[in-house]
């Protein structure tokens, strides 16, 4: 190994260290008690493995007025994410199928219309949406949040499926049509079996987006219906007496675990989703 390789490896290693450090600091801090935090530094190791702050973050820390930890909000997020991801992915798949294999006059225009939906800053729809949710009686509910996430996720899922299906040869579909297969039959027998990779991409993308969402959560939910990101932010900013950094860090890790887990298990698809959502067409 020559000097150049050593240099490259040390630069890469150093960078990796920098990227890892915040996570390491979070984990170390969450395992210390407050005395250790006050007397030590960011990188001093905990004396013993102490999971008290994890218990507290999960079940007893104060998030604003209530002091029941993140538990309930974690399940809120699960309840929001599961239906929103499934519904937006199913509709996205059907849209993509129509937009590539059953084109009609105006379908390209329709796709263009949706594309713009992936680019607008959501701030321009926040106020009218708040009014609409009030009108529908869904203000401050999990159902309202599910609806919002489905609606503003559709543009992305449609984009994923459309860009994927466009590479499936249309001859395949046309031959089936001549044999008398209909819309649903072709979707079910030909398209769906080929769709597994893009379904994974879409599910992972939507899952990460919705789990990590804060803007819609903070504007459209209240009290018991808040998702975990909002609860985490409340927990960190609730100032009752002593600042418990260890509990804050444990809470942050709890909020991050589901998406981290997905990233580690299915990182390849995660990257694909990022680049597919990014590099359009």
């Amino acid at each position: 190994m020559n000097i150049k390789r050593v240099l490259i490896y040390s630069i890469l290693g150093f960078a990796a260290l920098i990227y890892l450090l915040p996570l390491v600091v979070m984990v170390i801090t969450s395992l210390k008690d407050l005395d250790e935090i006050r007397s030590g530094t960011l990188l001093s190791m905990p004396q013993a493995l102490n999971f008290d702050s994890w218990d507290k973050a999960w079940g007893a820390a104060c998030t604003g007025v209530s002091c029941e930890g993140l538990k309930g909000y974690f399940w809120n997020s699960v309840l929001i994410v599961v239906p929103a991801v499934i519904i937006s992915t199913v509709i996205g798949a059907l849209n993509g199928y129509v937009l590539t294999k059953w084109k009609f006059r105006g379908s390209t225009l329709f796709f263009g219309m949706l594309l713009i939906g992936t680019m607008i800053p959501f701030q321009v729809v926040l106020l009218p949406m708040a009014r609409m949710l009030g009108f529908l009686g869904l203000a401050g509910t999990t159902s309202g949040l599910i609806m919002v996430h489905i609606i503003y996720g559709l543009a992305f899922t449609t984009l994923f499926f459309r860009n994927y299906y466009i590479s499936i040869p249309s001859e395949l579909v046309n031959a089936a049509r001549i044999d008398g297969a209909g819309f649903w039959m072709i979707f079910h027998r030909i398209i769906l079996p080929l769709s597994i990779p893009i379904i994974v991409v879409s599910v992972i993308w939507q899952f990460t987006q919705i789990w990590n969402d804060f803007l819609f959560g903070v504007v459209y939910s209240s009290g018991d219906s808040q998702p975990i990101t909002v609860a985490l932010n409340n927990l960190v900013n609730t100032s009752t007496g002593v600042k418990e950094y260890n509990v804050d860090m444990a809470a942050a890790i709890i909020a991050a675990l589901p998406t981290l887990f997905v990233y580690i298990v299915a990182g390849k698809y995660f990257v694909k989703g990022l680049t597919a959502g990014a590099v359009k067409g």
Binding site: N212, F214, T229, A255
Partner: peptide, 8 residues
């Protein structure tokens, strides 16, 4: 880090 929420 890209998998984390900005809040985290």
């Amino acid at each position: 880090p890209m998998a984390l929420s900005f809040i985290v």
